[in-house]
Design a protein around this nucleic acid. Structure first.
Length: 862
RNA sequence: GCCCGCUUGAUGGAAUUGGUAGACAUAACGGACUUAAAAUCCGUAGCUCGGUAACGGGCGUGCCGGUUCGACUCCGGCAGCGGGCACCA
């Protein structure tokens, strides 16, 4: 073998192998391969500037899987791209005067180089950036197809409007009722927006969650709650003295006989009509709007009602009239924007009734309750009864349980033409319009004569103009001198382009499909390519996308299926949500956050390195710029190497839990890398040329090493398949410890050592690929390790011939017993009874019972 | 308020899913090597009581209770921490 240096030079080695992998295109996905496929995908990054530790963790996890599967003989697709549209690019443009395109492309270059320095097994030939027209042109086409299929539509709705920035804000960008950047109180405004009809698939998106067995339960529950299916009824109340009806949604049609009032949203069409002629009502509405939309404001906001002159007739008794209120707690965008109130069986309705002096009538009582006494108590109190029970004071429903009464009420409503059973979802259609420059233009032209006209296919893509300015607030596309002025494709008269762009979640809803065929200019992707590669076998990313991105992608895949783009509904077969990377926080006495690099920890506390002022240690939190508790990955890679950084990411915590970044941890990983090198460069035993065990007699530590090597191969293979990287690392360290303990004098030591070392290097390669290649090469292998197969455990070596049994007396461990595998219970029992410790603890008693679990344990009950 | 997690040595965590709790690390301590330090190597270590010692006893997986020959693991109740949703009719 080649001579090995005493110390491992990671800088030289990492650069060398990265170049080798690139030059040999070692990670290209094969076209037309007959190997089984494996699509490994991490959520693609937003090119914000530089990579952070969260990226390192995310892409390391995916890379281990990709390398492991490749070694196992899969045709692996492991691509990378850039979620390149978004607000930060525009903010940079406003603050620093740099064009969003330039800023984004430069960030991509920087981050790509950083990812490459991590040694990720990415097929870079498939790289895509969503801000390029050759990407977004396809989603413009998709949108037009959605439009044709009735899956996209335009609607006027209430939005969060920032009066300083002149733009709509997403709900996530409204903090305590104010714009996240301007700080100005957000206004509710009505605006015409484009929507995607995600509700069309609500039932399927919900029921298909059960089939996503390789998704975390947590994510499925979150999506389940987000979709929020509830069964109930729409009920039509006739308006007294008018021809129209008030439509109400309820989940409790069984309590209709307890109705005391109806309430409608202040945005309900009826309320608007009334407000036109009623200044007091207008005051009421603006007072409610001013109350704010933050959670805290909602929490404390009083339930307020405004009595209208309207009255409605009860659906089961036309002589029974109910008042109609306009109430601040009724939402226009859930159900029908109108409710009926049953104070006795809904706490909020009860509060409302008490405040406005409305009647309370009990219509459900617990089974076996004294109906008269229960009713009297309930109707006098302030607490609603929402539990299960039977209908009372409810005419034809009396005596029925809640579930049965609901069915009876719905049947009656339907037969009388006063309502129908229905399913209501909490999920709302996805508003995709953004008054932003740095996004994909919505391919529509507004014509004063023809309305909203789709841009003809031949005119796609609609590209963003580059000559825009950011010196004024608002959308630069809106004030661009020429861009929006076009002729109507239908009538040819002057018309205006849509100046809104798509929400950035649009791009990320289909990029996984583009990776299957990224260079296609004719179509978004070739059908055969997505049929082969999709679904992604393993998708990895942060839990923060549990609902938004992951739900949008599931919807998009269904919509694309409806439009004939592909043939499947679920894009991600397996999902893994990794934990955050955390770090201790530090604060100066002034309260200012301090960087870890500027703080020195001592036995008696921490101080600022510059100046020596005392520092307050805070709890460990997710690394963030605002708390300054970040560690720069590039600095770590330069100091310790990519392999050490990768190993630390994998070794300390299970991947789904938060990882605490510590200096000691990265030091430990670095030391292990060096130790691994010494196992090859300065072995305790001069090892053999080949790891060929045929005909080699083994004894003592040599035999144990071979046995442990086989056990480790089996265990690590199992651990990696189940993403248990931390325990895989622990087992590899145990094998390292075993190699260091091989005794030169034991028979077969040289071969056993070489055998163990070979396996160790191959098993650790997915985690620390550079040093693995370096050792592999130094051991005399001509072909690179990335082209080598995954080791296989010999089942014969996994069978043990003796086992150590625990011997308990009354459930307490009193000794152990080495017996042959499968030893007979009777024999084991007498051996156990013969143990001195057992006799001591029995203290002369005769055992009542002896439990022998073969190959595991003996418990003597005395 | 509703839903979901989590709680094991000084620390991160392991435990073949009901069968020897604390693997593997980190920090610590003791020793070897060294003029010294770093690096490296060897060793100790859950807590506690008894003993000079070898060793032996008791207690121990957030708390209380249950099932079982046997519980970190299953069941019931409680607490603490974290997360998601929230005027959803």
């Amino acid at each position: 073998m080649t001579r090995m240096d005493e110390r491992y030079n990671f800088r030289e080695s990492e650069r060398k192998w990265q170049t080798c992998w690139t030059e040999t295109a070692a990670f290209s996905a094969e076209e037309g391969s007959d190997k089984p496929k494996c699509y490994v995908l991490e959520m693609f990054p937003y090119p914000s500037g530089r990579i952070h530790m969260g990226h390192v963790r995310n892409y390391t996890l995916g890379d281990v899987i990709a390398r492991f599967r490749r070694a196992q003989g899969f045709n692996v697709l492991h691509p990378m791209g850039w979620d390149a549209f978004g607000l930060p690019a525009e903010n940079a443009a406003i603050q620093n005067g740099v064009h969003p395109a330039k800023w984004t492309r430069e960030n991509i270059q920087t981050m790509k180089a950083q990812f490459q320095s991590l040694g990720l097994s990415i097929d870079w030939s498939r790289e895509v950036a969503t801000c390029e027209p050759d990407y977004y042109r396809h989603e413009q086409k998709m949108f037009l197809d959605f439009l044709k299929a009735g899956l996209a539509y335009r609607k006027t709705s209430m939005v969060n409007w920032d009066p300083i920035e002149h733009t709509v804000l997403a709900n996530e960008q409204v903090i305590d009722g104010c714009g996240w950047r301007s700080g100005a109180p957000v206004e509710r405004r009505e605006l015409a927006q484009w929507f995607l009809k995600i509700t069309e698939y609500a039932d399927d998106l919900l029921s298909a969650l059960d089939g996503l067995e390789d998704w975390p339960e947590r994510v499925r529950i979150m999506q389940h709650n987000w979709i929020g299916r509830s069964e109930g009824a729409r009920v039509w109340f006739d308006l007294v003295g008018r021809d129209d009806k008030l439509e109400v949604f309820t989940t409790r049609p069984d309590t209709l006989f307890g109705a005391a009032f109806c309430a409608i949203s202040m945005n309900h069409p009826l309320a608007k009509t009334l407000a036109e002629k009623d200044p007091a009502l207008r005051n009421f509405i603006s007072a409610c709007n001013a109350a704010g939309t933050s959670e805290a404001a909602i929490e404390t906001a009083e339930k307020m009602g405004y009595p209208t002159p309207l009255k409605v007739r009860h659906p089961f008794d036309p002589t029974w009239g109910l008042p109609v209120y306009i109430a601040n707690f009724v939402l226009m965008d859930y159900g029908t924007g109108a409710i009926f109130g049953c104070p006795a069986h809904d706490q909020r309705d009860m509060d409302f009734a008490r405040k406005y002096g409305l009647p309370v009538k009990a219509v459900v009582a617990p089974a076996n309750a004294d109906v008269a006494a229960f009713s009297t108590q309930l109707e006098a109190g302030a607490e609603a009864f929402t539990g299960d029970g039977v209908a009372i004071h409810s005419d034809f429903m009396n005596g029925q349980g809640v579930a049965q009464a609901k069915r009876t009420a719905i049947a009656r409503l339907e037969s009388r033409g006063r309502g129908r059973g229905t399913v209501q979802f909490r999920l709302r259609d996805w508003g995709v319009s953004r008054q932003r420059y740095w996004g994909c233009p919505i391919p529509v032209i507004h014509c004063p004569h023809c309305g909203a006209v789709p841009v003809p296919d031949a005119d796609l893509p609609v590209t963003l103009p580059e000559d825009v300015t950011f010196d004024l607030p608002g959308n630069p596309l809106e004030r661009h001198p020429t861009w929006k002025h076009v002729d109507c494709p239908r009538c040819g008269k002057p018309a205006l382009r849509e100046t809104d762009t798509f929400d950035t979640f649009f791009e990320s809803s289909w990029y996984f499909a583009r990776f299957c065929d990224p260079k296609n200019t004719e179509a978004a992707f070739d059908r055969a390519a997505v049929d082969y590669w999709l679904p992604a076998d393993q998708y990895i990313g942060g839990i923060e996308h549990a609902v938004l991105h992951l739900l949008y992608s599931r919807f998009f895949t269904r919509a694309l299926k409806t439009c004939g783009y592909l043939g499947l509904s679920e894009p991600f077969k397996g999902l893994f949500t990794q934990g955050m990377v955390c770090h201790e926080t530090y604060r100066a006495s002034s309260g200012a956050w301090l960087c870890p690099a500027g703080v020195e920890k001592r036995a008696d506390g921490a101080i600022e390195i510059a100046g020596g002022a005392p520092v307050t240690l805070g709890r460990s939190e997710k690394m963030s710029k605002s708390k300054k508790n970040t560690v720069d990955p590039s600095h770590i890679i330069e100091t310790y190497g990519a392999d050490a950084a990768r190993l630390f990411m994998l070794s300390d915590s299970p991947p789904d839990r938060d990882l605490e970044w510590t200096d000691a941890g990265i030091d430990g990983a670095w030391r292990y890398i060096q130790r691994l090198w010494r196992l090859a460069a300065q072995p305790s035993v001069p090892f053999a040329e080949f790891a060929d065990l045929a005909g080699v007699a083994l004894a003592g530590s040599a035999k144990e090493t071979v046995a442990m090597t086989h056990r480790t191969i089996a265990a690590v293979t199992e651990d990696l398949s189940k993403l248990r990287f931390n325990t895989a690392v622990a087992k590899l360290r145990e094998l390292s410890n075993q190699l260091a303990a091989v005794k030169a004098g034991d028979e077969g030591a040289a071969t056993a050592y070489r055998f163990g070392l070979d396996a160790l290097v191959r098993l650790i390669a997915p985690m620390t690929p550079h040093i693995a290649e370096e050792i592999w090469h130094a051991l005399g292998n001509a072909a690179p390790l990335v082209a080598s197969d995954w080791p296989k455990a010999d089942p014969a070596w996994l069978v043990v011939d003796t086992v150590t049994l625990a011997v308990q007396v009354n459930g307490k461990l009193r000794g152990t017993l080495d017996v042959p595998l499968g030893a007979e219970a009777k024999a084991v029992e007498s051996l156990a009874m013969a143990l001195p410790a057992v006799q001591t603890h029995l203290a002369g008693r005769t055992p009542k019972k002896v439990i022998v679990v073969p190959n595991k344990i003996v418990n003597i009950v005395g």
